[in-house]
Design a protein around this nucleic acid. Structure first.
Lengths: 130, 130
DNA sequence: AGCATCTATAAGTCGAGACTTATGGATGCA
DNA sequence: TGCATCCATAAGTCTCGACTTATAGATGCT
């Protein structure tokens, strides 16, 4: 399964967001995400499995609990894939910190500074729509 | 439709990769991607529509051709979503090491233990498997 | 040992979306 | 004006994956 397919599901994105703050037990995640999305424990467990099998999460057994932690390797791959598009927004930014945090790629302003028109497309960060 | 759902399809990712290099006509894209994935023109056209409707691409009519161009706004949103995970690979790397890691596309850092349990997980960048 | 809790898997249903063929609207050109 | 080309949309089929209920394996507690 491709990294973007894994990230295509809102439940899995939410799980990763929760894991971004640190380790968390499967039951904890199932309770939180299950309540939030109205799905049952096995459903969450299946999502966790997908995250595991695709390298997005690591598990550690502690007694009867399974503690999940984020494994960022595939996310870094996504980040790498995005590299080829960064020039489309990096050229507008003075964010020095951002450039330092990642490889600098900005150069060459073709004269057409990408109006960023489309006010249509939904966006990352909130889950809504039909 | 969520940005990650749009990116979940390999055809759409390929279209964006092609558009990353600059404007391209719908027919040109349909020929290239259609051949590559073995799908027909309407299929590609539908993918282009999705890219349009979700803000990933802009169209410009030139005669009877439609010239598509990438619109990076949603991709930047994806980049922002990734921010919360950056510390998982930025933290043990200084700026120089980041550039090196980025260029090398290495999945494991030499010094870091990070067993990356599941040795299976496919990665961004190539389209294969079933 | 017996029971409760935590988590994963199995089997089956159902809806979303990716594809197909068919077709229509625009533009270019003779 | 008539035809060819470029591209989009419509309608219908079919596969895939997300969910459900049911259940099994492991560990902890008494």
């Amino acid at each position: 399964m491709h990294a973007f397919d894994v990230l295509g599901d809102p439940v899995r994105r939410r799980l990763l967001e929760l894991l971004a703050d640190g380790e968390r037990s499967a039951g904890d995640l199932a309770a939180a995400v299950g309540a939030e999305f109205g799905i049952c424990q096995p459903a969450v467990s299946q999502h966790l499995r997908l995250l595991r099998e695709n390298g997005f999460a690591r598990v550690r057994a502690e007694g009867t609990r399974r503690l999940y932690a984020v494994d960022a390797a595939p996310l870094r791959d996504v980040d790498v894939w995005l590299d080829r598009f960064r020039r489309y927004w990096d050229q507008h930014l003075d964010a020095l910190a951002t450039e330092l945090a990642r490889g600098r790629r900005a150069r060459r302003t073709p004269g057409g500074p990408a109006p960023t028109s489309a006010g249509e497309g939904p966006v990352v960060g909130s889950e809504e729509e039909s």
